[in-house]
Write a protein that binds this DNA or RNA. Structure first.
Length: 108
DNA sequence: ACGGTGACGCTCA
DNA sequence: TTGAGCGCCACCG
């Protein structure tokens, strides 16, 4: 709740943002996947927390990160917006959910 | 330093 | 298959 002043992030947060910047367009990643890629497969919740206070909403394609079950999850600018962008990038979205296929899933 | 919160994940009913 | 519960980590005041 509430975030830090300015764009000052912790090492963990910066790592999360850094990893997400790697996700190419037209592909998606799961919170779990990101956490696992950082060596902290149990920190999936923390990953979401990091994205939540993310200010680089434009620089970081955080909209390409979804839940492990395919649910869209949340989005600082609005979940509906997130869905829209995903569709825009060629990701089939159905009722706030997407089909996580290997072709859409980005592997770190 | 502590407790509460949250863009999650997994298991059980 | 869907919903509820418990556990996980990191950040904020």
């Amino acid at each position: 709740m509430a975030q830090k002043n300015s764009a000052k992030y912790s090492e963990f947060t910066k790592s999360v943002l850094s990893v997400i910047k790697t996700i190419p367009q037209g592909k998606v990643a799961t919170y779990k996947g990101v956490a696992h890629a950082m060596g902290k497969p149990q920190a999936s919740r923390a990953v979401g927390n990091a994205l939540n206070k993310n200010e680089n909403l434009v620089a970081v394609p955080c909209h390409r990160v979804v839940k492990s079950d395919g649910t869209i999850g949340g989005y600082s600018a609005g979940a509906n917006k997130k869905i829209f962008v995903l569709k825009q990038e060629g990701i089939p979205v159905y009722k706030n959910k997407i089909k996580i296929l290997q072709k859409y899933l980005y592997e770190f």
